[in-house]
Design a protein around this nucleic acid. Structure first.
Lengths: 133, 133
DNA sequence: TTCAATTCATTGCATTTGCAATTACTTTCA
DNA sequence: TGAAAGTAATTGCAAATGCAATGAATTGAA
């Protein structure tokens, strides 16, 4: 059953290479596009929460977010109650680029599952949702 | 359907972090363990072939393999017919460590699919095999 | 209520990464 | 055959990465 791990590892690396190449022109390579997408969809996550949600090392995530703040895609806001937390939001620039990012993600996904029937697509989604990691 | 891409990305990153932590003591972090496993199972791939089979950048793969040659896990052999090619084999040291590497991979995989029935496991494997990447 | 354990963000540092370029074959095709 | 195109391995270099450590804030348990 280890083929599952190998398959998803290879798929992930291939998609990351493609997507980073696609968004390098926007300054969103090195998986930076991920943070813009997630912050748009769920505004106000704190840094560690955001990192954990995509399973990226917190220090790497921290530095990428800082870069995205510098380049104007994201902004940070101190939490009112817990002084440790800094919450992440997209700026207008981030919101403006979201549709393009998401469309490419959608396109990558469509290509990936293009040989599956609709039933199989749903089944795959369901099964992936049951995985424990 | 983009959830599929997100799920497998997060799973892959999480598993890589775990596995790298596990095999750092053997000098096999940074995905180095992957090359030992693959070279053991399919001896004689040339460098680019090995890199492509796991979807890792060829230059990164090249440097990792060189490190593994230096540390005694792998060895290279010039191809007899095509002078460009260098084929990769495990050494005794590499072969000796393979069972442990594969057992951990097996264990990670078992944990991942532990909430699935046997039928679901087989179905997941089948569906992943149909993906285009 | 106090102090130990936990959880944040952040930094230091050595290592790794990967794009772009180079060199050395090999293959193709006119 | 011979030049052009394609495919290896390899290197240069700037940037990214991630483990380990730090300090500040919060939580929990006695």
């Amino acid at each position: 059953m280890f083929e599952i791990i190998r398959d998803i590892g290879a798929i992930t690396r291939k998609i990351e290479i493609n997507t980073n190449a696609e968004f390098r022109r926007l300054g969103l390579a090195n998986n930076a596009f991920i943070y813009v997408i997630r912050s748009y969809e769920k505004p106000g996550m704190f840094l560690g929460e955001l990192a954990d949600s995509v399973q990226i090392d917190r220090t790497t995530a921290f530095r990428t977010v800082r870069k995205l703040v510098d380049s104007g895609y994201l902004r940070l806001e101190d939490d009112a109650n817990d002084k440790r937390l800094r919450r992440v939001y997209v700026t207008k620039k981030g919101a403006d680029v979201y549709p393009e990012l998401h469309a490419f993600e959608q396109h990558s996904s469509d290509t990936l599952v293009s040989q599956l029937t609709d039933n199989e697509k749903n089944e795959l989604k369901r099964l992936l949702g049951k995985l424990i990691y």
